[in-house]
Amino acid sequence: MTSLIAIANADAGTSDDAAVDEVVAALGEGADVELVRTSSPDDLAEALAQHPDVDGVVVLGGDGSLHAVVQAMRDAGRLGEVVVGLVPLGTGNDFAATLGLPDGHVEAARIVVAGRTRAIDVVVDGRDTVVVNAAHIGIGAEAAAAARPWKKALGPVGYAVGAALTGLKGLTTPGARLRITVDGKTLTRKEPVIQVAIGNGRYVGGGAPLLPRADPSDGLIDVSVSYTESPRRRIAYAFSVRRGEHHRRDDVVYLRGTEIDVRGDALRCTSDGELTEASPRYSWRIEPAAMTMYVP
């Protein structure tokens, strides 16, 4: 029988306990499964070390949880050896949407039990950190930085304040001067850049198709560069992102490659939902078919 460990967040609230129990029960219908709760990278490393012969690791959570597990498995040298499953229980389940996983947690668990797999690429940045879903620099990351104190201080109400700040800052933040190179070829446009997005998954922020043509198994990183400058065009850009149509705009360059290098003004980056400090340089490369995942 297939052996699995199910990884759940030890810091999650008790409201998630029933869902976790239901997932474990569904996994147990066709596999030998053990639930492990973790709260840190050290916990993940220990869990993997204690299960050296497991067939699959199933993530019970969202994009952040998946990122943490994939990073831990890669650090342990086991990413290519153990199949990864995903049961979307997080607030952001964007990569699950790219994979076509069902929203229902029991239904997603049964996808794992069914045992169908697919080779999935992994993006790795210049710090040797994985990007499972997507990363972006520019107005989105800057707005997230401005909203973060409000979200932390006010809880749920802070998200509304954060959303308002995001919209305002997105209209007023000046574009950056960047040199963007994809597979050794530098983009020739000279206008200021308001956003560079790269990734393996199509969606960010709970369903916005920022990289609408991304295929996590094609061996390529999708890249979207927006040169939109005026407030009016930025508003139109934002609406087109929600519809997944921005890649057709004349002020957006959309392409694919295996190595991306961005240099210029120091900017923050949001990578798999985590905000980094500002840096004048970012780079990413693809590792084709670096992991295998359970899929519908």
Rank of each mutant, 00 (worst) to 15 (best):
M1F: 10
L4V: 08
I5Y: 12
A6P: 03
A6L: 09
I7N: 11
A8G: 15
S15Y: 03
E22D: 15
E22W: 02
V23M: 11
G28M: 05
E29L: 11
E29I: 10
G30M: 09
D32C: 10
V33W: 11
E34S: 14
T38L: 08
D43V: 09
L44F: 08
A49Q: 11
A49R: 14
D53E: 12
V54F: 00
G64K: 05
L66V: 15
A68V: 07
Q71C: 08
Q71D: 14
V82W: 05
L86W: 06
V87G: 06
T91H: 00
F95N: 14
T98V: 04
P102Q: 13
D103M: 02
A109T: 03
R110N: 04
V112D: 06
R118M: 15
A134N: 08
H136C: 03
G138N: 01
G138M: 08
A141H: 03
A141T: 04
R148H: 09
L154H: 14
G158S: 01
L168Y: 07
L171N: 04
R179E: 14
G184E: 14
E191H: 09
P192K: 06
Q195L: 12
Q195C: 04
G199Y: 03
G201I: 12
G206R: 05
G207D: 02
L211F: 03
Y227K: 09
R232L: 09
I235P: 01
Y237H: 15
F239D: 08
R242I: 13
R242Y: 12
E245Y: 10
E245A: 15
D250S: 13
Y254K: 05
R256H: 13
R263K: 04
G264Q: 01
A266E: 01
L267E: 04
G273N: 06
P280S: 03
I286H: 06
A290V: 01
M291K: 05
M293C: 15
V295W: 12
V295C: 10
